[in-house]
Computed example of a mutant assay.
Amino acid sequence: MSLFRELHANPPLVLPNAWDAGSARAIEAAGAHAIATTSAGVSWAAGVADAGGLNRTTAVAAVRAIVAVVSVPVTADIESGYDDVSLTVAEVIEAGAVGINLEDSAAGALIDPALHASRIATAREVAVAAGIDLVINARTDTYLFGDGSGTIDRAKLYAEAGADVLFVPGVVDAPTIRRLVEESPLPLNVMVGPGAPTVPKLTELGVTRISVGPAITAGAYGLAAAAAQELLTTGTYKVLTTAAEFGKHNNLLR
């Protein structure tokens, strides 16, 4: 059993998502036991919009850069697979990833569940051929693009295809989370942020894996915008008191 898989066996696995090597190293130094990438954050860092702007080459390059500077397992957000799940999974494995997020939507619409199950099976086949115990986090966007109906049916198909975890973004209310935990054949990953239950509460509800998606990236860019606005208007620097100390962060990357 891989170290990353073992981390799922003793929940909660909390994953503050990174978008580049510097953020990944800072997150590791804060105590994270694994690093997850965020496709939105990687997209923004590359100067493109999320959900369609990122390509395989840039996504894989971000994974490779992150793996190079951390000593903990790295799982890669590969969105819906960049038009070729087999090639994308092979490339992120070669870059050093030991897990993936693979989502069942593209261009703002849900993918047929049977088709997505076949994509999960393909990802598993590629990992087995590479000799990697890949943890597949099957993301379903049933709550992002609908009312959540069909979530458990999809989970069953994805489990049969070889998925290890069910990722359901867009759900933060405790009753729904508890129901998903009880009904899903796979351990549950939820995406949190302000307004979501706390990590202790989510653990009590039975959630196995907790991530924040692009929230930390958005916070970093929010800090940049606020600091720039303050500098350009009042000419002061109060916002920057919350920024990382130069020497401390620089030393993390030595």
Rank of each mutant, 00 (worst) to 15 (best):
Tyr237Glu: 02
Ile120Asn: 05
Ala123Asp: 02
Asp133Arg: 05
Arg124Gln: 08
Ser149Thr: 15
Glu230Pro: 01
Ala244Phe: 12
Val74Pro: 01
Ala244Gly: 13
Gly96Ser: 08
Pro11Phe: 11
Leu54His: 12
Leu240Thr: 14
Ala62Thr: 08
Pro200Asn: 05
Pro187Ile: 04
Lys156Ser: 10
Asn17Val: 04
Val171Met: 10
Gly148Cys: 04
Ile66Lys: 06
Thr176Ala: 07
Arg209Phe: 04
Asp104Ser: 11
Glu28Ala: 02
Val70Ala: 03
Gly53Lys: 05
Val128Pro: 00
Glu183Phe: 05
Thr151Glu: 08
Arg179Val: 01
Phe145Glu: 00
Val69Ile: 06
Asp153Phe: 07
Glu103Ala: 11
Ser86Lys: 14
Leu134Phe: 10
Leu87Ala: 15
Ala107Cys: 09
Ser43Ile: 04
Pro197Leu: 02
Ala107Phe: 14
Tyr221Arg: 14
Ile136Ala: 09
Ala97Glu: 00
Tyr143His: 15
Gly52Tyr: 11
Leu13Gly: 04
Arg25Lys: 15
Ala9Leu: 15
Ala18Trp: 03
Val207Ala: 08
Val74Asp: 02
Val126Trp: 01
Thr217Leu: 09
Leu13Ala: 13
Ala34Trp: 01
Glu6Pro: 00
Ala76Cys: 06
Val98Gln: 12
Asp133Pro: 01
Lys238Leu: 12
Arg154Met: 03
Val63Ser: 00
Gly99Ile: 01
